[in-house]
Design a protein around this nucleic acid. Structure first.
Length: 334
DNA sequence: GTTCCACCGGAAACGGGGGACC
DNA sequence: GGTCCCCCGTTTCCGGTGGAAC
């Protein structure tokens, strides 16, 4: 039944984008000067998870690569590459100047210097999850580097700008922003249908079941595609030529669990302990949480480190930190 | 209204690990 | 081998803040 499993991969970038024409056009226009050998505009893409920001950025950059023969591009996930050094290293690696760079001892300033000295083809950098960068000053350095066009992706505009210093805010104030709203029901159905057409055999799934998935995903394309993938894999494993409705319904919780498990797998052991405690307690205040954490760990980290871990868990959407300061409690995300 | 205190989060310091240089 | 420099995870310090107790 599965003709092309890549299409069902959450990272897959389709050849044709459905229902994001305005966003694609806005980003294409901003980067269009590059086709004339000029500099692209600095862009921000804002919106909730699963609204297609990363997909649109990758797609548009790919289109640009097809239009411009001589161009360099790099996608950097600032979640995985959150330090100044890591970001600069990723950017430098795309222009092949990292051979003699050592991750433990080379000064980050040397990496920046090499990027600033780069005088090759136009360079487009996509910085995904840019709000997860620990050192935001690197954005200023990159902004001031000529020959580089930057596309930055984050969930919430207010949260990102609250983290930037005034110098950066004033520079980036004029940058263009594209806001991504949650997908509507019909949009999600169309996205799923496009994946079905390319990835599955004809009539592999009923329209009604596609609508069920779209409805249950509540505007989040990640969940919708993961559910389709889960259902298709189950039916394929069972040797079926058609995905039964009950398989689709069973796939939904499994898909959510798979997405959540991916986040859980990225946690360090101490972070996982914290998650387990919060899961068992339902809702817990910081004092109680740290007390239980100390009991379960032979070499507990400091309270400050635990607060950093909890911030990470919240940023992963695994937990919710409710209230401020002393009135704060932690509980699992829905 | 005031005081106390738990908690948050920024900044600086610390220490381990690793490469470069002499 | 010793020293220096750097990155990075962690700890320490501390000012700010909101809720509880008085």
């Amino acid at each position: 039944m599965i003709r092309d499993a890549r299409v069902l991969d959450p990272e897959f970038v389709p050849r044709d984008i459905v229902h994001r024409d305005a966003e694609v056009n806005a980003l294409s226009n901003a980067l269009d000067p590059i086709t004339e050998g000029e500099h692209g505009e600095t862009m921000f893409l804002f919106g909730p998870s699963g609204t297609g920001k990363t997909c649109i950025a990758r797609y548009t950059v790919e289109q640009l690569r097809e239009a411009v023969i001589d161009i360099t591009t790099q996608y950097v996930n600032c979640w995985q590459n959150y330090s100044r050094f890591q970001v600069l290293y990723e950017i430098l690696s795309a222009i092949g100047r990292t051979v003699d760079i050592h991750r433990q001892s080379t000064p980050a300033d040397l990496l920046l210097q090499r990027i600033q000295n780069y005088d090759g083809s136009p360079y487009v950098i996509v910085l995904d999850e840019v709000d997860q960068l620990e050192d935001k000053d690197v954005l200023y350095d990159l902004y001031m580097t000529r020959g580089i066009s930057i596309v930055m992706i984050a969930n919430r505009e207010e949260d990102l700008f609250a983290q930037l210093d005034e110098r950066l805010v004033s520079r980036l104030h004029a940058s263009r922003r594209i806001r991504f709203e949650r997908y509507g029901m019909d949009d999600l159905v169309a996205i799923l249908q496009a994946r079905v057409d390319r990835g599955l055999t004809p009539d592999a799934i009923d329209d009604e079941d596609l609508r069920f998935i779209a409805d249950a995903a509540a505007g989040d394309a990640r969940i919708a595609i993961a559910t389709l993938r889960e259902a298709a894999r189950t039916a394929d494993r069972d040797g079926l030529a058609h995905i039964p409705s009950e398989t689709v319904r069973e796939a939904l919780p499994n898909a959510r669990e798979t997405l959540q498990q991916k986040s859980l797998d990225r946690l360090k052991p101490h972070q996982r302990t914290l998650y387990d405690i919060i899961e068992e307690c339902g809702e817990v205040d910081p004092g109680e949480l740290y007390g239980q954490y100390q009991e379960r760990t032979s070499t507990p980290k400091s309270k400050r480190t635990i607060r950093k871990y909890l911030q990470k868990l919240a940023a992963y959407d695994l937990i919710i930190a409710e209230g401020e300061k002393r009135g704060r409690t932690y509980r699992l995300a829905e």
